[in-house]
Design a protein around this nucleic acid. Structure first.
Length: 593
RNA sequence: GGGGGUGUAGCUCAGUUGGUUAGAGCGAUCGCCUGUCACGCGAUAGGUCGCGGGUUCGAGUCCCGUCACUCCCGCCA
């Protein structure tokens, strides 16, 4: 009980019948019957119907009251008659007969209504975010986010993890995403960077002997936005453990995610134990390392079929001869679908920038036949071969694409989603988690052709140190893993390399001299040479977890005050210019355009 | 940096083949209404059709440019 209220707007029931109460909240909705006025008063907890009749002197004032004004209402709790009870409202058994009221906060005419399920443009929502956040759906998303974070914190504590804060002003890192830069006043010409993740710090915490660490860590990356990627900043459940192997990290994360997802949704898990899929297999079967396993479609390699003499598909055969590959998706019992069904996928593929998506269906008359524009280019024997490779049957159809490997993967990954979606194969009521494991340590840089780290340079290579094939670095796999849910990458993690000598060797392969490594990763390398424990960790994205739990496709729906796609905050007007005085203090000159 | 979509009243949208005075719902304002909970009924106000240029007798509609928002590619160890 405070000066402003004896109860909140979700509390009153028939038990309170006859009590005099104070409620404070926003004027959510009015229903004006001329001589009788209903007012819904709303706060964070719920709404309560308040009522006033014409004989009250301030009836006219309340009748004209602007919605979203903040009111304190003093009144009598009154049991509603049976016919007028509202079962959809917690407080629907009663109403409050207004005896007096006070305006605590006036409200101008609203740019967007709060009471509405309509959708509004991002621009206006972000500009008036405080109004937008009063609306039911997003308000409950943000409440959910708060609860999820508290729950995670609690569970992590129970699992024996210690919560620490790491610096926000740190040094720019040469690897990874673009940094946000902060100029240093005391060190003219030098800059801090905001952390892309507390990566090096969490490893240093392990070297410092704290054994298990976690943090709900803000991470800053100056990269362009996507629907599931905020520009600028996001939060990770950052965690790291000492004296563990990959499976030990998996056990903790599976346990945690199980608890979190079961606590906050009713949706089932497709797999209780998260399947482990090697990077190589994922790329083959799903053409991506973040597959949506709710989708049962799998991709098959048909390159060998196009080397057969009884296949007359000359365009593809020529491409295959010059190094292209063929990958295919089979759809069950679709041979009866109209021509437009198939052509639409071809059209779609072209709109994605591919040369198209070829197709045919398997039919049987005397022999096995392929029905479709390119069907007669395949002999019955070759069709048999395709059926053997893909598991296709008579009545099924096949979509295939031929191009350089990177292009084929780039087409087949979204094609698998698209076809699965069109055929309604994706069960929206499940969560399908999986681990992607055995990432390669290195890859070839597309632009320079040189060998570079494919993920985190601090990851531990797999295998006994003596047996690692340093001569063929592209064959080296790392203890590097991702966790994926419903096609969304939740996080990456790794068992770290805690051996300085091995690290020098690995950096050398990526073209770094010892002196360069010493210079760029001085703190880290130095720490590892004073007795570092084997350790590893992971960092699931909090925003994406909440997105999945809330069933939202856009990260802004679970973020209190997000920036727009151009990394601007329209409400606070950020970024903005600063005064000359500030620039001068920082020794910064702005280049005039 | 590149590609797609959108931009019309405060908000959400419609607007036909280029043709008279650009419409609807919600909201606002005014009036009527004692049981609503998306209350109902009637009226009124509200428009630089994102912006600039062009074609045309005539442009919300066609063309060129530009800006904003959004989705995607690149980017995101």
């Amino acid at each position: 009980m405070t000066k402003y209220r004896t109860h909140n707007c979700a509390e009153l029931t028939s038990k309170n019948n006859g009590e005099i109460v104070d409620l404070s909240g926003w004027l959510h909705k009015k229903r004006d019957h001329g001589n009788l006025l209903f007012l819904d008063l709303r706060d964070n907890y719920g709404t309560t119907q308040c009522i006033i009749e014409k004989d009250q002197p301030f009836f006219k004032e309340l009748e004209k009251m602007q919605l979203e004004s903040v009111l304190k209402i003093n009144g009598l709790v009154s049991q509603r008659s049976k016919e007028t009870i509202n079962r959809e409202l917690k407080t629907g058994e009663i109403e409050v007969i207004i005896k007096s009221y006070e305006v605590l906060g006036t409200c101008k005419e609203l740019p967007i209504p709060v009471f509405s399920d309509q959708e509004y443009s991002e621009e206006i929502r972000l500009k008036y975010r405080f109004l937008d956040l009063r609306r039911k759906k997003i308000h409950s998303n943000i409440l959910l986010r708060s609860k999820v974070i508290s729950f995670i914190r609690d569970e992590m504590n129970k699992l024996g993890f210690l919560e620490f804060q790491t610096p926000i002003l740190t040094s720019s890192s040469p690897e990874g995403a673009r940094d946000f830069i902060v100029p240093s006043r005391l060190n003219p010409g030098k800059f801090y960077a905001l952390p892309q993740a507390p990566q090096q710090f969490k490893q240093l915490i392990m070297v410092s002997g704290f054994d298990k660490y976690f943090q709900i860590a803000p991470c800053f990356r100056d990269e362009d936005a996507r629907a599931d990627r905020s520009p600028g900043e996001f939060y990770q459940l950052d965690l790291e453990m000492s004296f563990v192997e990959q499976e030990d990290v998996f056990e903790v994360v599976e346990k945690l995610l199980n608890k979190v997802f079961k606590k906050f949704t009713d949706k089932k898990f497709l797999y209780e134990k998260f399947p482990r899929i090697s990077f190589k297999n994922a790329m083959l079967k799903y053409a991506t390392d973040k597959p949506d396993l709710r989708n049962p479609l799998e991709i098959h390699d048909l390159t060998s079929v196009f080397k057969r003499d009884d296949v007359k598909f000359e365009i593809f055969k020529r491409l295959v001869k010059s190094g292209s590959i063929v990958r295919a998706i089979v759809t069950k019992n679709t041979s009866d679908k109209p021509r437009s069904f198939f052509d639409n996928f071809d059209k779609w593929a072209k709109s994605e920038g591919a040369s198209g998506l070829a197709y045919f269906s398997f039919e049987k008359n005397k022999n096995i036949e392929a029905k479709g524009p390119v069907g007669k280019l395949f002999s019955p024997e070759s069709l048999n071969e395709i059926m053997k490779i893909t598991g296709a049957n008579i009545g099924d159809s096949i979509f295939f694409s031929c191009d350089k490997e990177t292009n084929v993967l780039q087409l087949m990954a979204p094609a698998r989603d698209k076809i699965g979606e069109e055929l309604n194969l994706i069960d929206k009521n499940v969560f399908a988690f999986c681990w992607i494991v055995d990432y390669p340590m290195y890859e070839t840089d597309k632009n320079t052709g040189k060998i570079k780290f494919s993920h985190n340079p601090f990851s531990m290579p797999q295998g006994n140190e003596k047996d690692i094939d340093f001569k063929n670095p592209l064959n080296i796999k790392a203890y590097q893993y991702d966790i994926v849910c419903n096609g969304i990458e939740l996080s990456s993690g790794a068992i770290r390399n805690h051996k300085p000598e091995l690290m020098y060797k690995l950096f050398e392969i990526a073209g770094y001299k010892k002196s360069e490594v010493d210079e760029k990763f001085k703190g880290m390398i130095n720490a590892l040479s004073f007795g570092a424990p084997p350790h590893g960790g992971i960092a699931p994205g909090i925003d994406r977890i909440v997105m999945l739990l809330a069933g939202e496709k856009n990260i802004r729906e679970v973020t209190l005050f997000p920036m727009n796609q151009n990394a601007q905050d329209l409400m606070m007007n950020a970024p903005s210019e600063i005064h000359d005085k500030q620039l001068k203090e920082l020794n910064i000159l702005i280049k005039k355009k």
